[in-house]
Structure formats: structure tokens, C-alpha cells
Design a protein around this nucleic acid. Structure first.
Lengths: 140, 140
DNA sequence: ATCTGTGCAAATAGTTTGCATCCTC
DNA sequence: GAGGATGCAAACTATTTGCACAGAT
């Protein structure tokens, strides 16, 4: 099942009605490569109030259809949750590019921390900062 | 060498003058257990303007004497950089408590990602969210 | 004496809320 | 037709900036 179909289903089940603002935001996420900020979303959609964007983000996050990614500046990023494609981010401090990566070793290390700490882990964020290969070349 | 001594030295070398606001912020960090937000710092220090707090945080971060920790809400946290005591954070979503943890397995997984990605890693943030043991007990 | 650091207040940026209206069910 | 969804504008919170003045060197 595609993510947008899954999202619509979950939203319906949760009792939310379907309006045009929400539909447009969901569509945007469905086609997005990586994380988007609220303001990016707002500016890419015509005739949708900023408040509706935030309200929709809130609903989607609550249902775990999207998740917040702290990319470290002033604005928070949000991206589709796709359990089959769990990943983290590398942020280039020079050009701002966001690259996804995965690491089984990393995930198992995190699970181990959860076990030892006694915390019931719900989610985790891993953000690696540095300089991407292109910018390293440009600097040289 | 203690962190505050190291900090003063670095600040002097960087050409910054010493004023009372900065001194108080540095002292607060020297005695802090974990991350502090700008507003916490401002409220714990009498007669220091909020702007000076932010300006000082900016200087300290630039010199890598403190680092920003994205604890996920609206306010960013800052804490002392102590290479000998590198650690990450567990955040309890119920009571907000911040607990530090370390994991060699995690660190080596991150190094490996750096090597494979081609990024020159400068820093990284790992934030695990969940429910702390106390809150789990309280919920039961 | 000079020039940086500081405090205050105003300006900004991101996010949230109140409310009248529109549209889904 | 009723009640949630939406858009607009105003409110809020965290952070930044402009400026006059105090204080460090």
C-alpha cells in the first residue's frame, strides 16, 4: 500500500474529515524526497493558509505518518514515516544539503542503549553534521 | 585544566574582552550538569540582558566551547563541550527529563557512516525519545 | 581615550490561536 | 443541517538587531 493511501486511511479512522488543505499537504509529502520545513510547504502550495499547514503537520505527526527532524537551524523539518525505509540524515554545513543514510550497526547500538537505560524508546533522531564531498572538493 | 580556565583562555585568544555578562554565563555552564536553554540561563542570572546571553552563547559555540543540542521542542539546549566526556541524550516525553548516555558501539557506527558517505564529519547529535523508568512506573 | 561588551527596547522569524466562513459528511 | 476544516489576522515565543552607555584595556 502506498504511503498516501495509508495516510488517508489513518486520517479517516482517526475521525478527521478531508479538506483541500490537508489533501494538498499529504500530496506534497507523498512526492517529497526528504524532509520539508513548514514554510517550504506553505510556499509550495498556493491558496493554503499557513495555519492549516501547521495544523495538518500536527495531525500527521500525531498519527505517526510524518516525523519531525531537527535539522538544527530555526525551522523544523518534517518527513514521511516509512518504517520500511527508516533512515537518518547527514547535513552539509556549507551547502545545507540533506542526505539520508541507514546503518544497521547504528540501529542496534540504539536498541542496546534503550535496554540498558530502562527507557521505553519511542523514536530517535540522529543528525550527523559535516561537509559533503562536493563542498570538500569546492573548498580545495 | 578545568573547562572554565580553558574557556577563558580561548576567549582571550580569540580577542574577546571579558565582561560581567559573559563571565556569569561561563560560570553557569561550568557548574551545569547537562544542557541548558537560553531562557533558563537568562532566568538564572540576575541583571543580565537576554541579548547578552544569546551573544555569549554564539561566541562560545563558535569557539566550540559549548554545543547546541536539539532537544526537540521550541527552545534549543546548549551544553559544555568536554571531549573527554562526549555523550548523547535520552529525553523523556512525559516529564521532560534529559539523561546523558554514552555508547562506544554508537560512536563507531557513526564513524563508519562518515567513512562510507564521504562526508567530513564535524559533529553529530543523537537524541533518543521515550519514557523514562519513573514515568513508566507512574503510568502503570 | 578608545573601542568592545552590555542592557534595553524594538524588530524578526517561526509557530499557535481566535474566529467567521466554507465545505464535508 | 451540523460540526469539523480552512483562511485570515492577531497573539505568542524564541531569537536577533540597533543603539546609547558603561566598562575593560
Amino acid at each position: 500500500m502506498t504511503w498516501s493511501a495509508h495516510a488517508s486511511e489513518q486520517l479517516d479512522q482517526a475521525g478527521y474529515r478531508s479538506g483541500s488543505a490537508r489533501r494538498q499537504v499529504v500530496d506534497l509529502f507523498a512526492g517529497a524526497e526528504c524532509a520539508l520545513t513548514a514554510l517550504e510547504i506553505d510556499s509550495r502550495i498556493e491558496s493554503v493558509g499557513r495555519a492549516s499547514v501547521y495544523r495538518t503537520l500536527d495531525q500527521l505527526e500525531r498519527l505517526q505518518l510524518i516525523q519531525r527532524v531537527e535539522i538544527g537551524g530555526d525551522a523544523a523539518g518534517y518527513e514521511r514515516v516509512d518504517p520500511a525505509a527508516h533512515h537518518h540524515h547527514l547535513v552539509c554545513g556549507r551547502c545545507g544539503r540533506l542526505s539520508p543514510f541507514t546503518s544497521d550497526e547504528l540501529e542496534s547500538a540504539i536498541e542496546a542503549v534503550g535496554r540498558h537505560s530502562g527507557f521505553a524508546l519511542a523514536s530517535h533522531d540522529v543528525v550527523l553534521r559535516g561537509t559533503c564531498p562536493e563542498c570538500q572538493a569546492a573548498d580545495a
